[in-house]
Protein backbone atom coordinates (compact mmCIF):
# COMPACT_ATOMS: atom_id res chain seq x y z
CA UNK A 1 0.00 0.00 0.00
CA UNK A 2 1.25 3.43 -0.75
CA UNK A 3 1.01 6.54 1.32
CA UNK A 4 -1.81 8.63 0.13
CA UNK A 5 -0.21 11.68 -1.39
CA UNK A 6 -2.84 12.55 -3.95
CA UNK A 7 -4.54 15.82 -3.39
CA UNK A 8 -7.86 15.11 -1.80
CA UNK A 9 -10.68 15.71 -4.19
CA UNK A 10 -12.47 18.13 -1.90
CA UNK A 11 -9.81 20.78 -2.45
CA UNK A 12 -10.96 20.89 -6.03
CA UNK A 13 -14.03 22.70 -4.79
CA UNK A 14 -11.93 25.31 -2.97
CA UNK A 15 -10.88 28.38 -4.85
CA UNK A 16 -7.15 28.45 -5.63
CA UNK A 17 -6.68 31.70 -3.74
CA UNK A 18 -7.99 30.03 -0.56
CA UNK A 19 -5.48 27.19 -0.72
CA UNK A 20 -3.09 29.00 1.65
CA UNK A 21 -5.70 29.36 4.37
CA UNK A 22 -4.85 27.64 7.63
CA UNK A 23 -8.34 26.15 7.56
CA UNK A 24 -7.77 24.74 4.10
CA UNK A 25 -4.35 23.39 5.06
CA UNK A 26 -5.69 21.77 8.21
CA UNK A 27 -8.53 20.18 6.25
CA UNK A 28 -6.17 18.88 3.60
CA UNK A 29 -3.85 17.40 6.23
CA UNK A 30 -6.75 15.80 8.10
CA UNK A 31 -8.32 14.35 4.98
CA UNK A 32 -4.95 13.10 3.73
CA UNK A 33 -4.23 11.36 7.05
CA UNK A 34 -7.70 9.99 7.57
CA UNK A 35 -9.76 9.92 4.39
CA UNK A 36 -13.38 8.94 5.11
CA UNK A 37 -12.94 5.36 3.96
CA UNK A 38 -10.07 4.92 6.39
CA UNK A 39 -11.80 6.77 9.22
CA UNK A 40 -14.85 4.56 8.89
CA UNK A 41 -13.88 1.53 6.82
CA UNK A 42 -16.33 -1.14 5.74
CA UNK A 43 -13.67 -3.83 5.39
CA UNK A 44 -10.94 -5.21 7.60
CA UNK A 45 -7.96 -7.40 6.75
CA UNK A 46 -8.90 -11.09 6.67
CA UNK A 47 -6.83 -11.80 9.80
CA UNK A 48 -9.25 -9.74 11.90
CA UNK A 49 -11.18 -12.84 12.88
CA UNK A 50 -11.29 -13.50 16.62
CA UNK A 51 -13.57 -12.69 19.52
CA UNK A 52 -10.62 -10.92 21.14
CA UNK A 53 -11.20 -8.05 18.70
CA UNK A 54 -14.59 -7.18 20.20
CA UNK A 55 -13.15 -6.14 23.58
CA UNK A 56 -11.94 -2.77 22.33
CA UNK A 57 -15.41 -1.90 21.12
CA UNK A 58 -16.94 -3.37 24.31
CA UNK A 59 -14.70 -1.00 26.29
CA UNK A 60 -15.96 1.93 24.20
CA UNK A 61 -19.57 0.83 24.66
CA UNK A 62 -19.15 0.56 28.45
CA UNK A 63 -17.50 3.98 28.51
CA UNK A 64 -20.58 5.31 26.75
CA UNK A 65 -22.82 3.77 29.44
CA UNK A 66 -20.53 5.10 32.19
CA UNK A 67 -20.80 8.62 30.76
CA UNK A 68 -24.53 8.41 30.13
CA UNK A 69 -25.35 7.21 33.65
CA UNK A 70 -22.89 9.76 35.04
CA UNK A 71 -24.74 12.49 33.15
CA UNK A 72 -28.03 11.40 34.76
CA UNK A 73 -26.40 11.49 38.20
CA UNK A 74 -25.00 14.95 37.40
CA UNK A 75 -28.41 16.26 36.33
CA UNK A 76 -29.92 15.51 39.72
CA UNK A 77 -26.89 16.40 41.82
CA UNK A 78 -24.54 14.56 44.13
CA UNK A 79 -26.95 13.78 46.98
CA UNK A 80 -29.85 12.54 44.84
CA UNK A 81 -28.90 8.89 44.81
CA UNK A 82 -28.86 8.68 48.61
CA UNK A 83 -32.47 9.74 48.94
CA UNK A 84 -34.21 8.42 45.81
CA UNK A 85 -34.77 4.80 44.80
CA UNK A 86 -34.46 5.79 41.15
CA UNK A 87 -31.25 7.62 42.05
CA UNK A 88 -29.90 4.51 43.74
CA UNK A 89 -30.73 2.49 40.63
CA UNK A 90 -28.89 4.97 38.38
CA UNK A 91 -25.95 4.84 40.79
CA UNK A 92 -26.00 1.05 40.50
CA UNK A 93 -25.94 1.35 36.70
CA UNK A 94 -23.00 3.74 37.00
CA UNK A 95 -21.07 1.41 39.32
CA UNK A 96 -21.63 -1.73 37.28
CA UNK A 97 -20.85 -0.02 33.99
CA UNK A 98 -17.51 0.98 35.50
CA UNK A 99 -16.87 -2.64 36.53
CA UNK A 100 -17.73 -3.80 32.99
CA UNK A 101 -15.58 -1.00 31.52
CA UNK A 102 -12.48 -2.10 33.44
CA UNK A 103 -13.25 -5.75 32.77
CA UNK A 104 -13.42 -5.21 29.01
CA UNK A 105 -10.42 -2.87 29.02
CA UNK A 106 -8.20 -5.40 30.84
CA UNK A 107 -9.17 -8.24 28.46
CA UNK A 108 -8.52 -5.83 25.55
CA UNK A 109 -5.10 -4.98 27.00
CA UNK A 110 -4.15 -8.64 27.42
CA UNK A 111 -5.27 -9.36 23.86
CA UNK A 112 -3.30 -6.46 22.38
CA UNK A 113 -0.24 -7.44 24.39
CA UNK A 114 -0.23 -11.00 23.07
CA UNK A 115 -0.71 -9.69 19.54
CA UNK A 116 2.23 -7.30 20.08
CA UNK A 117 -0.09 -4.68 18.66
CA UNK A 118 2.57 -1.96 18.86
CA UNK A 119 4.38 -3.33 15.80
CA UNK A 120 4.52 -1.35 12.59
CA UNK A 121 4.48 2.24 13.86
CA UNK A 122 1.68 1.49 16.32
CA UNK A 123 3.63 2.35 19.48
CA UNK A 124 1.67 5.55 20.05
CA UNK A 125 -1.53 3.51 19.94
CA UNK A 126 -0.20 1.25 22.70
CA UNK A 127 1.00 4.18 24.81
CA UNK A 128 -2.27 6.12 24.56
CA UNK A 129 -4.07 2.91 25.56
CA UNK A 130 -1.90 2.47 28.65
CA UNK A 131 -2.29 6.12 29.61
CA UNK A 132 -6.08 5.87 29.13
CA UNK A 133 -6.07 2.92 31.54
CA UNK A 134 -4.07 4.83 34.16
CA UNK A 135 -6.23 7.96 33.89
CA UNK A 136 -9.37 5.77 34.08
CA UNK A 137 -8.08 4.34 37.36
CA UNK A 138 -7.82 7.93 38.61
CA UNK A 139 -11.30 8.75 37.33
CA UNK A 140 -12.78 5.72 39.11
CA UNK A 141 -10.85 6.58 42.28
CA UNK A 142 -12.25 10.12 42.41
CA UNK A 143 -15.68 8.59 41.82
CA UNK A 144 -15.30 6.51 44.95
CA UNK A 145 -14.30 9.71 46.79
CA UNK A 146 -17.39 11.55 45.52
CA UNK A 147 -19.94 9.09 46.91
CA UNK A 148 -20.33 10.95 50.26
CA UNK A 149 -20.63 7.74 52.25
CA UNK A 150 -18.50 5.56 54.51
CA UNK A 151 -16.53 4.35 51.46
CA UNK A 152 -15.51 7.87 50.53
CA UNK A 153 -14.44 8.65 54.07
CA UNK A 154 -12.44 5.46 54.37
CA UNK A 155 -10.82 5.64 50.94
CA UNK A 156 -9.91 9.32 51.27
CA UNK A 157 -8.37 8.98 54.72
CA UNK A 158 -6.39 5.92 53.59
CA UNK A 159 -5.36 7.16 50.15
CA UNK A 160 -4.18 10.54 51.43
CA UNK A 161 -0.97 8.93 52.72
CA UNK A 162 0.06 7.63 49.31
CA UNK A 163 -0.83 10.85 47.50
CA UNK A 164 0.79 13.02 50.19
CA UNK A 165 4.02 11.01 50.09
CA UNK A 166 4.45 11.98 46.44
CA UNK A 167 3.96 15.65 47.23
CA UNK A 168 0.83 15.73 45.08
CA UNK A 169 -1.29 16.08 48.23
CA UNK A 170 -0.32 19.75 48.29
CA UNK A 171 -2.49 20.32 45.22
CA UNK A 172 -4.68 17.24 44.98
CA UNK A 173 -6.47 16.99 48.35
CA UNK A 174 -8.41 13.72 48.45
CA UNK A 175 -10.27 14.80 51.60
CA UNK A 176 -11.71 17.84 49.82
CA UNK A 177 -15.03 16.54 48.52
CA UNK A 178 -15.73 19.52 46.26
CA UNK A 179 -12.34 19.25 44.58
CA UNK A 180 -12.67 15.48 44.07
CA UNK A 181 -16.18 15.86 42.61
CA UNK A 182 -14.88 18.40 40.10
CA UNK A 183 -12.03 16.12 39.08
CA UNK A 184 -14.45 13.24 38.79
CA UNK A 185 -17.16 14.88 36.73
CA UNK A 186 -15.17 17.42 34.70
CA UNK A 187 -11.42 17.08 34.46
CA UNK A 188 -10.76 13.34 34.38
CA UNK A 189 -13.69 12.39 32.09
CA UNK A 190 -12.47 15.07 29.69
CA UNK A 191 -8.97 13.60 29.70
CA UNK A 192 -10.25 10.01 29.36
CA UNK A 193 -12.50 10.90 26.44
CA UNK A 194 -9.72 12.86 24.71
CA UNK A 195 -7.21 10.04 25.18
CA UNK A 196 -9.66 7.39 24.02
CA UNK A 197 -10.50 9.58 21.02
CA UNK A 198 -6.84 9.89 20.05
CA UNK A 199 -6.38 6.15 20.67
CA UNK A 200 -9.26 5.25 18.33
CA UNK A 201 -8.06 7.68 15.65
CA UNK A 202 -4.59 6.13 15.85
CA UNK A 203 -6.14 2.68 15.41
CA UNK A 204 -7.89 3.93 12.29
CA UNK A 205 -4.77 5.75 11.06
CA UNK A 206 -2.47 2.73 11.34
CA UNK A 207 -5.01 -0.04 10.91
CA UNK A 208 -5.22 -3.30 12.86
CA UNK A 209 -1.82 -4.88 13.44
CA UNK A 210 -1.04 -7.78 11.04
CA UNK A 211 -0.04 -11.20 12.36
CA UNK A 212 3.55 -12.25 12.90
CA UNK A 213 5.08 -13.94 9.88
CA UNK A 214 4.98 -17.73 10.29
CA UNK A 215 8.74 -17.79 10.84
CA UNK A 216 8.89 -14.90 13.29
CA UNK A 217 8.78 -17.02 16.42
CA UNK A 218 12.13 -18.59 15.59
CA UNK A 219 13.81 -15.24 15.07
CA UNK A 220 16.07 -13.66 17.63
CA UNK A 221 14.99 -10.14 18.25
CA UNK A 222 17.99 -8.31 16.87
CA UNK A 223 19.87 -11.05 15.09
CA UNK A 224 17.17 -12.40 12.85
CA UNK A 225 17.70 -10.42 9.80
CA UNK A 226 15.02 -11.29 7.38
CA UNK A 227 16.65 -9.53 4.50
CA UNK A 228 13.36 -8.02 3.47
CA UNK A 229 10.08 -8.11 5.28
CA UNK A 230 8.15 -10.88 3.70
CA UNK A 231 5.07 -9.98 1.85
CA UNK A 232 2.24 -11.94 3.28
CA UNK A 233 0.36 -13.19 0.31
CA UNK A 234 -2.83 -15.08 0.54
CA UNK A 235 -4.32 -17.15 -2.17
CA UNK A 236 -7.37 -15.48 -3.54
CA UNK A 237 -8.44 -11.94 -3.97
CA UNK A 238 -5.66 -9.40 -3.58
CA UNK A 239 -6.45 -6.44 -1.43
Amino acid sequence: MTTNTETPTDTATALPEDADQLSAKLRRAAVAALPPERLMPDRQPAYVASWIYVFGVLTLASLAVVILTGVVLAIFGPSWWHVSTVGLFVNSLHLWSVEVFFFAMVVHLWGKFFMAAWRGRRRATWITGVVSFVVSVGAAFTGYLSQQNFDSQWISTQAKDGINSTGAGAIFNVTNFGQMLMWHIVLLPLVVVLLVGVHVLLVRLRGVVPPFAPTDHTAKETGADQASPQKITVKGVPS
Binding site: A46, A49, S50, F103, G111
Partner: peptide, 21 residues
Protein backbone atom coordinates in the same frame (compact mmCIF):
# COMPACT_ATOMS: atom_id res chain seq x y z
CA UNK B 1 -14.04 -14.26 35.03
CA UNK B 2 -11.55 -12.00 33.25
CA UNK B 3 -9.18 -14.92 32.74
CA UNK B 4 -12.02 -17.21 31.65
CA UNK B 5 -13.41 -14.63 29.23
CA UNK B 6 -9.94 -13.94 27.82
CA UNK B 7 -9.38 -17.65 27.21
CA UNK B 8 -12.85 -18.01 25.71
CA UNK B 9 -12.31 -15.01 23.42
CA UNK B 10 -9.21 -16.68 22.02
CA UNK B 11 -10.52 -20.22 21.83
CA UNK B 12 -14.12 -19.89 20.70
CA UNK B 13 -14.29 -19.93 16.88
CA UNK B 14 -15.19 -16.60 15.33
CA UNK B 15 -17.22 -16.84 12.15
CA UNK B 16 -15.86 -14.21 9.84
CA UNK B 17 -17.97 -13.16 6.92
CA UNK B 18 -17.36 -15.59 4.11
CA UNK B 19 -14.74 -17.39 6.14
CA UNK B 20 -14.46 -20.87 7.54
CA UNK B 21 -14.23 -21.73 11.25
Amino acid sequence: LMVVVFAAAILIPFRRPGGRD
